[in-house]
């Protein structure tokens, strides 16, 4: 699909795709915010503060999802030395990190009125913080070496070690007693969010996913430009 022997062609395709995804993102975001802030009902217990969920939960999902993709690509980088995986994983990291921070901050804002505290060192929150640290290490590993080969190795190892944290995040609320409540959306058990509240949650997740694709494309575009300017042999 993407022809690397003709980078200018790929760049053109990415440029067009960016505009299309940007328009789609704006449309889905407006719809999602309207659903989340206006149409969806308040919660019987938390009343309006439940609306933070429509930012908090999608942001957490996206950040964990992106990290998992980076980790799986990193196996490919270490084993098969796949050049394209390097660019993809490097370009994915910033949006994943941003959504990780959004999840932590909105969680904190949500925690104060409901739990009565901004922060708790429970297993879910701590493992989410650890994910942010892994993101940070991954991104910094591209900046600390002159030799790009070292950066590639280090970042890939950081990503595969970070993958161990992913199931810990997911199951922390089931394995240990935490302040954070167990997951409401389940594959094997009944989902405990009312359907009128699932709607904005789904749309906001789509909006955030589109946003991370957009940021990914912009970063990927820049990385390709860098290679084009250096000459393909440098890759």
């Amino acid at each position: 699909m993407l022809n690397y022997f003709n980078p200018s062609n790929t760049l053109k395709v990415i440029n067009k795709l960016q505009k299309f995804i940007f328009a789609l993102f704006i449309a889905v975001l407006i719809l999602g915010l309207f659903e989340a802030l206006v149409l969806s009902p308040e919660d019987y217990k938390q009343s309006d503060s439940v609306r933070i969920m429509y930012v908090h939960v999608p942001a957490a999902w996206i950040s964990v999802g992106i990290f998992s993709v980076i980790s799986i690509l990193s196996f490919g980088i270490l084993i098969f030395k796949n050049k394209n995986f390097i660019l993809i994983s490097k370009s994915l990291a910033p949006s994943g990190f941003v959504f990780n921070i959004i999840a932590l901050v909105t969680g904190s804002i949500w925690g104060k009125p409901t739990w009565g505290t901004w922060w708790a060192w429970d297993a879910r929150i701590t493992s989410m913080l650890l994910l942010a640290v892994f993101y940070l290490m991954f991104m910094l590993s591209w900046k600390i070496f002159e030799d790009e080969k070292k950066s590639i190795k280090l970042s890939s190892y950081i990503a595969i070690f970070g993958l161990i944290n992913v199931p810990i995040i997911k199951f922390s609320v089931d394995w240990w007693s935490t302040l954070h409540q167990p997951s409401s959306i389940n594959v094997f058990k009944e989902t405990t969010i009312h359907s009128t509240m699932l709607m904005p949650l789904g749309i906001m997740t789509a909006a955030f996913a589109l946003f991370s694709i957009l940021i990914f494309l912009m970063k990927y575009h820049t990385e390709l430009l860098k290679i084009k300017n250096k000459g393909l042999d440098r890759l």
């Binding site: 009902p41 919660d43 019987y44 409901t114 009565g116 708790a120 969010i193 009312h194 509240m197």
Partner: peptide, 17 residues
């Protein structure tokens, strides 16, 4: 010295409750 509320995983509108 400190009380924290732990809420459950159920979310629904008041009418449904």
């Amino acid at each position: 010295e400190k009380i924290l509320a732990k809420h459950d995983e159920n979310y629904m509108p008041p009418e449904v409750k």
